[in-house]
Every structure is written in structure tokens, then in C-alpha cells.
């Protein structure tokens, strides 16, 4: 009995460790298992919901009207666009007031944009570690992304996710991302959705899982989701890249995020790459030649159509 009292901590600790060990071993095993199989692009594994979120998702289903349609981009947009002819937008320069009715959804890069950027008038739904996989369950400030989207109508919705997911299967990421975009489309049918390409990392920050090569793969898949009508693809990398196509080392200290002061540049770039729908095709901003490439890519077929169809769609949702 005396021994038991003397060794109480030892005994309880040993017991808890023994009980906990299978869980810990599973964790360690999965961890090393994953590291071994290098993150090469594999065949698609999961096309709809990620398996691990299934259970959680079913138990705590969000109260807001969460879109139920999954992977119906084509159908949804067709239905929307068949009514009125597609109106393609062009990229123009806008002032910061453009972002009055904008919502930014994103991970830590967007957190930086919120905290250190100049666009304080916009709304932000972002958190460190936010990912497209878990976005349905993640609550920030007491509401999920769907709560934020249902709270008020937005004119523009910017989405930049992917750095946390990029180490994973690309198909899975793209499918989760597409679900998110479709959902936003459904909740906010009139908003312009900007799909932001993921910022590159520096070579020093590259790992077997996170690399610019994989980021480029992901970004190009994301750019395919843009239809140039409701969804546009913009890519900041032209601003911050060095000549090798990696994030310039001088702009960052951790290789992943730009330094605080460069978020000003980022915001200026966002202002310079806003979509104007139905306006007469204005000249794309000249100050950023590389960004212009991206702009023309997305708006190439727009030149003719916008001229003929001068529907001022912008005003439609601003009145709602």
C-alpha cells in the first residue's frame, strides 16, 4: 500500500500510456506511412466528400442553407446562363471601394491580407489552416462559411485555398474546391467569384509535399473552373515570382507568406484586376504587364460579346 502511494504517478502514467499507445501508434504509423509514399500525383481516389469528414459532417450539419448539389457545376451554370446569354467580363482597374461588398475566403495568406492589407472595407472569412476539405465544418467567429455567405449579399467573392491541401491528392482537392465554388454559386448566384491561384513558395520552403510544381498543377486545375462569366481566375504569382517561377526570397521570411509590407502591393494588384461585367471593354491595366496576360487569357472571348450585350449586371445584386 505504501508502495502504491509512493509510485502513484508512475502507475497511473504507465496505465494511461498503455491505454493511449494504440492511438499514438496509429498516428505515428500514418505519419511515417504518408511520408514514405512521396506525394506524386496519383489516380483519383475520392471524388466527393472526403471520407474522414463524413461522420462529422452528418452529425453536425450546418444550420444554414448549405448547398446540397455536388459536382453539378455544369448543370447549375448552364441553367443560370441559358436564361440570359452569358455576359463575359473584362479586367479593369478599380478603386478600393470596389471591395465594399467583397468577401475573401482563404487560409493564412488571406489572414495576412486581412491584417496587413489595405482593403479594410471588405469582409473576410479566413483562418490559418483553413482548407477546402474541412470548410463546411470550420467555424470562424461563430459561423461557418455558409453562415457568412447567407448573412448578406456579396458582389464579389474571392477564394484562395490550396496551400494546405496541395500535398494531398490533386483530384480530391479539386473536387472539394469545386464543391465549394458550386456552393457559393448557389448561395450567391449574382456574385462574381474570383478563384485566386495559390501563391508560390520559395525553393527553400519546398518539401516533398509542397512544391511549386504541385502548386502549379493545382492552380491550372483551378483556372479551368473559371468560366469567364461568373467565375474568374486570377493569379498573384506574376507579381511575386522570381525568374525561376518561385516566390522571390526577398519578399518573405518563412518562404510561404509574403512579408507584411507586401500585402499593400497585393491589394494594389487586386484593385488592378477587377472584373467589370457588361461595361464596354476597357483597356486592361497597363501597369502590370504580366497580370494582363492572365486577364486577357480569361477574357479573350469577351471582347466581342461585351460590346454587343451591354447589360449592367453589377447593379442587379447591389440592389438586393
Amino acid at each position: 500500500m505504501n508502495n502504491l502511494k509512493k509510485g502513484l504517478y508512475t502507475i497511473i502514467l504507465l496505465f494511461t500510456c498503455i491505454v493511449a499507445s494504440p492511438i499514438m501508434f496509429r498516428k505515428i504509423w500514418e505519419n511515417s506511412d504518408i511520408k514514405q509514399q512521396k506525394a506524386a500525383a496519383r489516380a483519383p481516389v475520392i471524388s466527393t466528400q472526403p471520407a474522414d469528414t463524413d461522420s462529422e459532417g452528418s452529425t453536425e450539419a450546418p444550420k444554414e442553407t448549405q448547398p446540397t448539389s455536388e459536382g453539378e457545376t455544369a448543370a447549375a451554370t448552364e441553367a443560370a446562363t441559358s436564361a440570359s446569354e452569358p455576359v463575359k467580363g473584362t479586367f479593369v482597374q478599380s478603386g478600393p471601394e470596389y471591395f465594399d461588398d467583397a468577401l475573401f475566403i482563404g487560409d493564412s495568406r488571406t489572414v495576412g491580407l486581412r491584417d496587413y492589407g489595405t482593403l479594410k472595407n471588405a469582409d473576410y472569412f479566413c483562418d490559418i489552416g483553413l482548407s477546402a476539405y474541412k470548410i463546411n465544418e470550420t467555424t470562424i467567429g461563430g459561423s461557418t462559411v455558409w453562415g457568412a455567405l447567407n448573412a448578406k449579399p456579396y458582389g464579389k467573392i474571392y477564394v484562395m485555398l490550396g496551400i494546405n491541401e496541395v500535398g494531398n491528392d490533386i483530384e480530391r482537392t479539386v473536387s472539394a474546391y469545386r464543391q465549394l465554388i458550386d456552393g457559393i454559386r448557389e448561395v450567391q448566384p449574382d456574385a462574381i467569384i474570383y478563384i485566386e491561384g495559390n501563391l508560390h513558395v520559395t525553393p527553400a520552403a519546398e518539401t516533398s509535399l509542397i512544391s511549386n510544381e504541385r502548386l502549379n498543377m493545382l492552380n491550372s486545375r483551378m483556372s479551368e473552373m473559371a468560366d469567364g462569366v461568373h467565375t474568374y481566375y486570377i493569379d498573384i504569382n506574376s507579381v511575386f515570382d522570381d525568374e525561376t517561377g518561385a516566390l522571390t526570397a526577398d519578399y518573405t521570411s518563412d518562404g510561404i507568406h509574403v512579408l507584411g509590407k507586401y500585402y499593400t502591393t497585393w491589394c494594389e494588384w487586386l484593385c488592378a484586376n477587377t472584373v467589370s461585367q457588361g461595361q464596354p471593354a476597357a483597356a486592361a491595366p497597363a501597369e502590370n504587364a504580366q497580370a494582363e496576360e492572365a486577364a486577357t487569357y480569361a477574357s479573350e472571348p469577351a471582347e466581342t460579346e461585351t460590346a454587343t450585350q451591354g447589360l449592367p449586371q453589377n447593379e442587379e445584386f447591389s440592389n438586393q
Binding site: I23, M24, K27, I28, N31, I34, K35, A39, D107, S108, R109, I128, G129, S131, Y133, K134, I163, N164, E165, G167, N168, L209, I210, I256, H257
Partner: peptide
């Protein structure tokens, strides 16, 4: 520590 290792494949760090 367990959480720190959470899904290293995805690195929910950023």
C-alpha cells in the same frame, strides 16, 4: 503533440 502531427499530409499550418 498529437495535434501538431495532425494530418502531416495536408499540413494544415498555413
Amino acid at each position: 503533440m498529437y495535434r501538431g502531427m495532425d494530418d502531416p499530409f495536408m499540413y494544415f499550418r498555413f
